[in-house]
Amino acid sequence: MLRPTILLLLASLVVSCGKAPDGTQDAGADPQVQSLGQVEVTARLVELPEGAIFQRELYDYATILKYEVVTSHRGALPKGTILYVGHYNPWKPRPEAADARVKEIGGTLRRFRAGDLHRMALESPMDDHFMGGIVNKYFDQHTGPTYWARWTNPAH
């Protein structure tokens, strides 16, 4: 007869079947994040620069946040890639972020916190999808593509 600790170990192996070694394969998955955009990644939010997210009802704006790719689900963004991603009205929970101006965004993330993992469906370049004010604390730090977040879920 197997001891209870061994049973628990076997059970956890069954539950984790299908996950990547880092445990992010399924976390945050839903039909939207798995189908929208050209790229789908799980990425860690590297930091929240001061002043990048603020609540100001006067303006609808997007903010650029810096990510490091942990898992690539669709598209060609290998693990470790640094991404710059635009989020629309980032002070709003993602389920409430879409409006008449920007309709096709969403997700289940409620709040951006440095260090968190996000599973995101992304478009690129951002300029093809959003024409409005952008807060970009990294404007002089990168020249590559900026991605546009279509769907953002927590992935932890």
């Binding site: 002043g51 024409m131 409005g132 004010g133 807060v135 970009n136 404007f139």
Partner: peptide, 23 residues
Amino acid sequence: VEQLIWSPDGTAFTGTANGLGPF
């Protein structure tokens, strides 16, 4: 991104733009 205005001599545009600074 908005408020595009063509110069009177046709040689340039002005407008409110992203990417020139953090705002």
